[in-house]
Design a protein around this nucleic acid. Structure first.
Lengths: 226, 226
DNA sequence: CCATTATTGGAACGGCGTTCCACACATGTC
DNA sequence: GACATGTGTGGAACGCCGTTCCAATAATGG
């Protein structure tokens, strides 16, 4: 990687880490996780793979950096909500919307544990959990649950996005297909799954996500000794 | 795919879907997710890729089937626990242990939403949530939170496993590295992250996982109107 | 102006999932 | 027994991929 001199440009529109990340974001949003390849990137940037490797260590570093660019924007606004609970909900919803708009982020976050994109979320969530009055080791536990839950939703979203893209189904068709499969399961072995098949077809991801956050918040609150 | 005649064997030790899945499990456990390739599989089974494709539709189907084999074993034992809460904890711990023993399962589960391996878990979890006394739409919400949380942990485990394998770090070194990075963050911007860095180094995944399940269970219980 | 270093872009390597096809084998029919 | 039939097999080949290598070029410092 380069220790870039800070005063000059090789020429206008020269290659740079930022331009590469920007182009990667475009590719990822156009064609999903599998759309980010060094060949497509080379073409978009009108250069060769070798030039890209001068600025970027590996594909996984690039992928993580792209996710960090999105997360960093999504966590930029300060949380001025009245209560810590409200702030956590706002933060979580911000994550959900970012993940929903860029489904590939789910994979990126999962693969970069302890790295900048996840740490940004960890920090903001942790500050609010503290503000909530959670003490000591319970802080770690509360934040872990929240983050793991968000990661779970993120991963599922990423998978759904890829699956839908691959099979050229939109969300409705996708959900209908699954609900149909569920209804054909053995009634004796799968009573519960069958009973919620209709819910699967009609549910709203965002609403359910928030309901989950609230459920966890209730669990956290109930451990507080006021 | 074959509609296998049920009466004869082409010869002893002939290829079959089961033998392929068994060999895949061995590869996955030996070398992780990236260890499962059709070339390695061909070699292990002393055949060519074409023969495998006669029994298997694609790699992703094979990957899902391998995960289902594990999950199906892990969910085979009946849950005879005294209370639904205890049963949910047992079930969740069973999942954790399966995921811990086979970290690649995390990826597989994430990529197969609504498919057999996840449906098995969904069903068992749903039955216990019902037994808990949760009614109506709250059932869907409770199960969603639990599954998304489990998936989040699973995904993180899978990522940690891959990362560790790639960089040839064992768990301790891996955690130490992350804790070190966290401690070098800007104290003004990352106070919380720095404050839990030591906890990161010493935490027990299994204990924390169960603490998370309990937190969610508390949240679920608090919505029950007895 | 030259020597040196930073940067570029394209060729090439090994490996991947998948497809294709010529071939072997077990079977049903005479 | 001979033969047509359809089920399995295995290896070659295709078009991708991430990554490495390197000769050519552009900017800089002496």
């Amino acid at each position: 990687m380069t220790k870039k001199a800070d005063s000059y440009q090789r020429r206008e529109e020269s290659l740079s880490r930022d331009r590469i990340i920007e182009a990667s974001l475009a590719l990822l949003d156009e064609s999903g996780e599998s759309g980010l390849t060094f060949r497509a990137l080379s073409e978009k940037l009108a250069t060769g793979p070798g030039a890209i490797y001068w600025h970027i260590e590996s594909k996984s570093e690039l992928f993580t950096a792209a996710a960090d660019a999105i997360i960093s924007r999504a966590t930029a606004a300060p949380l001025a909500d009245a209560t810590p609970e409200a702030a956590i909900r706002t933060l979580a919803l911000g994550m959900f919307d970012a993940i929903d708009a860029h489904p590939w982020i789910g994979s990126a976050l999962s693969r970069a544990p302890g790295r900048p994109p996840m740490v940004r979320i960890l920090e903001r969530m942790g500050q609010q959990v503290r503000a909530l009055g959670v003490q000591g080791d319970a802080q770690w536990e509360a934040v872990s649950v929240l983050l793991n839950y968000i990661l779970g939703v993120a991963g599922r979203n990423a998978a759904n996005g890829q699956f839908g893209r691959k099979h050229e189904l939109d969300r409705t068709d996708f959900l209908n297909t699954i609900a149909m499969e569920w209804l054909q399961l053995d009634p004796d072995a799968y009573p519960f799954t069958r009973s919620i098949a209709h819910r699967m077809r009609t549910h709203d991801d965002r609403v359910d996500f928030l309901a989950g956050i609230d459920l966890i918040l209730k669990g956290i609150s109930s451990t507080l000794t006021p």
